[in-house]
């Protein structure tokens, strides 16, 4: 698995240069452009539509927006934020995603260190259990966990989704961090211990600062995962609107509004805005997280 991460870091090889000016180059470019257009078109159509007045969306196709007279408006965004509960939902999504990222990362870091640099009986098989848990479908856990939350009376609260996301994110977080921490040079840690440092000191002063890149990848990956999640929120928040994240609110809108495209397009784009910013700003870390995540669920 670590090999996959490493190959990602290899700079663009000479394969590209060799083939660049061959006769098929034009064809390659054309095929690529067609694929890219096909991939971008749906998103562009949504964005353009969300900026068009309500009465035009329903009667003409979105690309006709670029014919004179140009009529673009922000009113769909204003409406959806004020009326359709999207403002609250945006805050709720943050409320869920930030702790849903921070909590499992903190807890996993300690476990990853213990799995890497402490010796104990059963370490091997315990770690195998963690790896096996990465692929367990969360559907297997829904009913017992829902009953547990009901008994505790926390169904429909943020605490329930935080706990759930923390637990569901743990196996992969431990796996990714252990891959990184166990490959730190042994000499580095040894010299710290020789100098009389204890495990906590080595962990906080030496290991954590060194694995910041891995923490960044994991953090972005987990944040996107939680931000984009529908199922966990749907089940454990039980449809309560004042705690619903954007995914749940939009899914409800789709089912009740049907074709209210002026709301849906704007709402969908609001929910995409943050992940897209994160993606373009931190693409390198996100891609690394995805590469490492090729065993995740």
């Amino acid at each position: 698995m670590a090999d996959i991460i490493h190959t990602a870091a290899i700079p663009k090889g000479s394969m590209g240069r060799r083939l660049k000016l061959r006769p098929g180059a034009v064809l390659v470019n054309i095929v690529l452009i067609v694929i890219c257009l096909f991939w971008l078109l749906p998103t562009v159509g949504l964005l353009v539509s969300s900026l068009r007045p309500k009465e035009l969306i329903a009667v003409s196709a979105w690309w006709e927006a670029f014919q004179a007279p140009l009529r673009f408006t922000m009113e769909n965004y204003v409406n959806v934020l004020s009326r359709a509960n999207m403002g609250t939902s945006f805050v709720n999504s943050l409320m869920i995603a930030i702790p849903g990222t921070v909590i499992p990362m903190c807890i996993a870091a300690f476990a990853a260190y213990a799995f890497s640099w402490m010796q104990f009986k059963g370490r091997e098989w315990l770690y195998l259990v963690v790896i096996a848990l990465i692929a367990v479908p969360i559907q297997m856990t829904l009913i017992p966990v829902l009953r547990l939350f009901n008994n505790l009376g926390i169904t429909g609260s943020f605490l329930a989704v935080w706990l759930a996301h923390a637990a569901y994110g743990l196996p992969f977080s431990i796996y990714l961090l252990r891959n990184f921490i166990s490959q730190l040079p042994q000499s580095m840690l040894e010299s710290a211990f020789v100098d009389g440092a204890s495990h906590p000191v080595v962990f906080f002063r030496l290991v954590l600062p060194t694995c910041l890149p891995a923490l960044a990848s994991l953090g972005i990956f987990q944040f996107m995962w939680v931000w984009n999640d529908l199922l966990v929120a749907l089940i454990y928040l039980g449809g309560t609107t004042d705690v619903a994240p954007m995914t749940v609110t939009i899914a409800n809108m789709v089912n009740s509004y049907g074709g209210g495209w002026e709301y849906l397009t704007a709402a969908a784009f609001i929910s995409m805005a943050l992940p897209l910013v994160v993606f373009f700003a931190l693409q390198k870390y996100f891609v690394k997280g995805v590469l490492a995540g090729s065993v995740k669920e």
Binding site: W39, L40, P42, T43, G45, L46, S49, M224, W227, N228, D229, L230, M246, T247, I250, A251, V254, W261, L264, T265, A267, A268, F269, S271, M272, P275, L276, V278, F279, F286, V287, V290
Partner: peptide
């Protein structure tokens, strides 16, 4: 790669359109 960053829900809206 962009669609990987957005939710299935948003993708669902995009494609319903």
């Amino acid at each position: 790669f962009i669609p990987m960053a957005i939710s299935f829900v948003a993708a669902g809206v995009i494609w319903r359109f």
